[in-house]
Nucleic acid binder design. Sequence first.
DNA 1: CTGAAAGCGCTAACAG
DNA 2: CTGTTAGCGCTTTCAG
Lengths: 327, 327
Amino acid sequence: MRDVAAAADVSLKTVSRVVNREQGVGTATEARVTDTIRRLGFRRNDLARSLRRGQSTATIGLVVGDVGNPFFSGIARAVEQVAHDQGYMVITGSSDEDDDHERELVATLCSRRVDGILLVPAGRDQRYLLPEVAVGTAIVFLDRPPGGIGADAVVLDNVGGARRAVDHLLAQGHRRIGLLRDSTTVLTAQQRTRGYCAALAGAGIEVDQRLLRSGLHDADDAARAARDLLALDDPATALFAVNNRMSLGALRVLHCHDSPVALVGFDDFELADMLARPITVVAHDPAAMGATAAKLLFARLAGDTGPHRRVVLPTTLVARGSGEVPP
Amino acid sequence: MRDVAAAADVSLKTVSRVVNREQGVGTATEARVTDTIRRLGFRRNDLARSLRRGQSTATIGLVVGDVGNPFFSGIARAVEQVAHDQGYMVITGSSDEDDDHERELVATLCSRRVDGILLVPAGRDQRYLLPEVAVGTAIVFLDRPPGGIGADAVVLDNVGGARRAVDHLLAQGHRRIGLLRDSTTVLTAQQRTRGYCAALAGAGIEVDQRLLRSGLHDADDAARAARDLLALDDPATALFAVNNRMSLGALRVLHCHDSPVALVGFDDFELADMLARPITVVAHDPAAMGATAAKLLFARLAGDTGPHRRVVLPTTLVARGSGEVPP
DNA sequence: CTGAAAGCGCTAACAG
DNA sequence: CTGTTAGCGCTTTCAG
């Protein structure tokens, strides 16, 4: 900028005015400066700008479990869209559902002075965020509510959705319904398990611990667990998968299984309706979740200081076949 | 930092030393400073740090067509992983395959002084990047080679992959093979069309322009075009879809079509093998592409000044059924 | 309409 | 082992 000023024979401030389209620059001067800028290939340094202005880096952070998972990439896409409309960029990080990794990502984002953070928490305790909140960083939770602190959150009706899924299986006459779930620490898995238990309780069925498989990290784990459940002395006749990866594993097993086994999965799939055995799911809208959370964040950045809000998005049971198999 | 220095009764520089774990601070002093930092909730401002050090913001930019598309989110995930290993974060942006949008995103990234950019170009001309390259920003192209400038690139064997796909259909006896492709400006679509034409030429078949459908922006467009092709007086007996969205549209049509029509698509799908009509695809590895490109970028950032490299990743034809249907 | 000086939060270079 | 000074590239404040 100094170089531009020297070359155009004006003061630094004048260049700054031109760059920022401020008023009060003579047309001739402006033309000369604009020209010099182009000639020298000058580009404003937004780092320095943010530093000096002391606020708004026009950047928000997004921490999800894994951008490679369509659920999260759907969120990411929507967030990016809203951010772009506001002139913001987004730094995305995947926590791999790991507590420490989550904290590390958040810390880095804060060090870079992002204006706000959209967080899908992996851990159960986000008290580590208290200093950041105090400093004024806006934070909105996605998919799972905050632990140990108050904050805005956009979540799904997990208990209700799971309950409806399992009720649906019960209505088909199933009594032995296996549960496939990932890490027990992730709150959504817990809530969906609650829905599962509530449905069974509603039908007067006691939960058989052997039908509950936890700590499954990926589709392969889920597939192994599904095979297990179908090989029990008193095997499961139906499966409830708490998320898309669990469903994927289950699908892989059921696809090669002779006697039909019922399956309902949480999270929808792109090709769900065109499968050999179209899968019945608890569907919801990841993009709506991302967009809602992002809008909430920008409302906070715009000065909204109302009480913490919790938005609960609905889920719908979409019957496609795999859930309508009798025992 | 000044506050910490004052509160701990040391100089600014000493705090800086502690924060950066530099040598030469008395254990007692260090403890005092560390304590004060925690007490005051101090966090180093990486913006100011980057500004002062004059290099490395430890951030790279990634511009893709649409993070919501599994092809791109697979890339994003791999890029993020490599970046994280290097202590970098990544700012991701979706161009929506729009030329202007691409330039705007790149400009913003440059203003933020990212150390490097991974770019899936939407447009055909990236000469606008010349000033950035001159300034030292590292740039690696993904999926499509640069236009008008020299730069590293990681691409697929598009012509070869498409040719094999169409050869495969020809081997089944097909003579009227429809082509579904998106924007004609996107180079990958052009190359895949070249492969299509080459295969037909190899079989001594002239290209029928009515079988070529271009400018399809999404799966819905592709579905409409596919229906058209099957409703011709002399209808297509097979379809070649140039990417996952085109395939999706075609699948949707073929799924409800009585007489079987052959289909081969470029890009693999997660559930491809479990579909009612398992889809034959030209498969490749998006994650490998992202990782390779990211590693190339970091090699450049580490000082590699060799000539521009072009890495061509292989494609494989995976026969699953939809491509093995006779006319 | 234009410019000079000060300073954002930090680190590099040099003292002590 | 610790402190002082200058300055990264920009904007803000105030004075022409």
